[in-house]
Each structure stands twice: as structure tokens, then as C-alpha cells.
Simulated scan of single mutants.
Amino acid sequence: MSRIALIAGEGRLAPAIAAALDQPLVYALDHLKPALAARPFRLERLVPFLDELTDQGVTRAVFAGAIRRPKIEPELFDARTMAIVPRILMGMQSGDDAALRAVLDVFEEAGISICSVDQILPDLVPGEAVLCGAPGPCDQKDAARAAEIVAGLGALDIGQGAVVAQGLCLAVEALPGTQAMLEFARLHAGLKPDPQGAGGVLYKAPKPGQDRRIDLPTIGPDTVTQAAEAGLAGIAWQAGSVILLERAETLRRAEAAGLFLWARG
């Protein structure tokens, strides 16, 4: 019988995907703390792990949730995994997307195809629409500027988000993630030229050319709370390319805070 493995990262996405699957086998890198029970595995023993999946009848896998880079312990490598280390290390040196792509290639070479999150739960990735609120002309200009910045960052495999207010970039996403970016924007909100002007926009999108089976940007209730604390007017993202978690609660918080949510085409 064909089975599916859920490779769980941290955050709320993995439990949402697990609930949509029929008895998935759930695994997680052993340095992570996923929000559901998961069997641990180590990157240093990736090939034996893939053998285990094959023995369990796994033919498909889905990656869901945030994955922090593990600390590599060379003495733990088995001989077969050691043979693919140069590929993985080369990817890790190039950036997160390249590292994940290298791991996906190894899975598929073992006969395990990778499913994207929107194949499992299409409703998690909204198409073009304003979900709540109404972005005004200044907000639309800020979103367009932020989209240009994110595209430029993404080409360098740096991040998937930016905050722009009144045409100026207040913060960009890097390795520390969205929460750190929004905290930086909150601390520097006083740099907006006009205190009474447009509050600013958080924009998120995948990196250009990114493998969309894994590591799509995510927005959820906490993102809204942090954006409101940063004094922003709303959140925009590339339609059909960003995961929206806990939609009802996310919209409720946005409406309560007076923020717009816009899946931008």
C-alpha cells in the first residue's frame, strides 16, 4: 500500500497538513520541535532514513513547517550518506532554497515524489483577492515597491518578505525570519517621513525560480498581530503563492486591527 510521509517543521502548518492526510507517517529533524508527535531523523543519516521510508511503503512525501538548519556532526555520517554530502553542503552554502532543492533531489532519486502543500490543501493558498479591508492608492504603491524588493532579494536566495512605508524600505527578511523583520520595522517606525501618512505594507512572495513544493512563505494570526504592532496598514502577498494559516482567526485579527489582507495578482 502506498503511504505518504509528512516531514514536519515547526509552527502550525504541519498539524494542519497532518489533519488533512489519512494516517501519514510523521517525521522531523531531531533538532526541531514540531507541534505534533514526530519520529526524529538526522540529516547525517539521510540515506538510511530514506531506506526506512521505502520499507514502510512510502512513495510520496510532503514538507510542512519551518525548518532551521541543523548543526552537522561529521562523525555521525554513514558511508552512503557521506557520498552525497558534497551535493548537500554545496546547496547549504548557496542558500536555503538551494539546500532544500538538493535534499528534494535525493528523495526523488530514492523513488519518493514530493507533494506541495497546495496539492494537499488547496484552500491554504488563496488566489487573487482582497480578503479584508481596502488597500488605498498609497498602500498599493508601497506593495508594488515591496514586491520589487522581494524579487531582488529572492534572486540572491536571501528572503521572502519586505516592509515598505511611504515608498521607503523599513525592513527586509533574512535568516532570522518574518518575526524579526516585523520587530525591526516596529522599532524603526519613526523613520516614516510623515507620521500621519501611509502606515506601510508587509509583502511576501516566493523567491524567483523557487521550487514551490517546499518552503512557500506563510502568513497567519501572529503575522497580523506583529504587523499591527509595527503600525502597518496591511499585508499583501503574491496571489496563489503564499500559505494562509488559520484563515478565520487571521481575518478576525486583521479586521479587529483595521488591517487589510490582499492576495495581490
Rank of each mutant, 00 (worst) to 15 (best):
V125P: 10
D105L: 05
M90D: 06
S113Q: 05
A230K: 09
A110T: 07
R69F: 03
H31T: 06
V26C: 15
G57R: 06
I235H: 13
A228P: 11
C132F: 12
L100D: 01
G190S: 12
E246M: 02
T178A: 09
G177I: 06
A66L: 07
G65S: 01
V106I: 15
L153Q: 15
D78Y: 02
A147I: 15
E109A: 08
K141R: 11
A146V: 12
A228T: 07
P70N: 10
L53G: 06
P176K: 05
E52Y: 06
E52K: 12
A254N: 02
C132Y: 08
E75W: 05
R87E: 01
A8Q: 07
F260N: 02
A143G: 11
H31F: 00
G95E: 10
V62G: 09
C138W: 12
V224I: 09
R264N: 05
P206D: 04
E73N: 02
S2A: 09
L251V: 03
P24F: 02
L170N: 11
P195F: 06
P34D: 06
Q166L: 08
T54V: 14
A35Y: 13
D118C: 06
F77T: 11
A16R: 07
E108I: 09
D51M: 08
P15D: 09
I114D: 05
E10L: 08
A83C: 05
I4S: 03
C138N: 10
A228W: 14
V163I: 07
T250P: 08
G9P: 12
A205D: 13
T250N: 02
A5D: 00
L216R: 14
K207T: 09
E109T: 07
P74F: 03
A263S: 14
P122L: 09
F63L: 12
I243V: 01
P122T: 15
K141N: 00
E148P: 01
L156P: 01
P137E: 12
K141Q: 13
L29N: 04
L100P: 00
A227Q: 11
A230P: 09
V150R: 15
L187Y: 14
R101P: 00
